[in-house]
Amino acid sequence: MTPRVEAHDLVRVFGGRRAVDGVRCSLRAGECLALFGPNGAGKTTTLRLLAGLLSPTSGEARVAGVRLPSPEARHHIGLISHRSMLYEALTARENVGFSARLYGLADPEGATDRALRALRIADRADVPVRQLSRGMQQRVAIARAIVHGPDVLLADEPYTGLDEQGATALTALLRERREAGAAIVVVTHHLHEGLALATHAAIMQGGRVVRHESAHGLDPLAYADTYRALVA
C-alpha cells in the first residue's frame, strides 16, 4: 500500500540557514506522527514542506504517492494551524462553505453541515466568526480543514488557544479521523496531548530528527525526561 505521507531527505535552506536538514519519514493510513522539538527546530517548516506550502531546496515530499505541490496531492490534505485561517467577517457556515466549493465538492452545503455538526458548532454557524470565542473559532477552523474529507491531516500547534475541554475534543476528533484511516502529522509543544494521539513520536532539533520511535507504550513522564535530556 502506498504510504499516505512520505518525506525523502527533505532539505530547506533559508538564506544560508538549513531550517530543515534531511528529514525523512513515511506514514501509512491510520498512523499519527507527533513531532516535538524546541522553537526553531524546523518542525513548522517540515510541516509546511509536507503541505506543499514551501518547496524543498532538495528532496521531495509525496502525499498519496503524488509529488507535492501538485493539485492532485493537495486534494488529500487538511491543514490545521494555531492561526485560524478564517475570515472573521464571515460566518462559520460561509467560511466552511467557501472551502467546500474551492475543493469542488458535489454537495457543498451538505458537506458544510456535516462538518459543522461533527465539531458541534451547528448552532453558532450563522454568527460572524469574529464574535466567537477562541476555542469556538478553532473548531470552525478544524471544520474548514476537514470539510473535503482529507485522508492526510497536518496540524501545526493545534492546541494553542484551546481550553481543557477544547483540547480534549480536538484529540478525540483527530483520533476518530486516524481510526477512520487518515494519516496525521501533529507538531506540538504539548507532550501529553501529542502522545495521547500518536502512533509514532519524533523529536527535532537543528533541522534534524534526532529521535524517532513508536509511541506505543511510551510513558509521557519518562518521554519528557528523554526530551529534556536531548534538547537541553
Partner: peptide, 12 residues
C-alpha cells in the same frame, strides 16, 4: 489570520 495558507493549499 493566515487565510492565505488555506487558499494556497486548496487544489486551485
Amino acid at each position: 489570520d493566515g487565510a492565505m495558507d488555506a487558499l494556497l493549499i486548496a487544489p486551485v
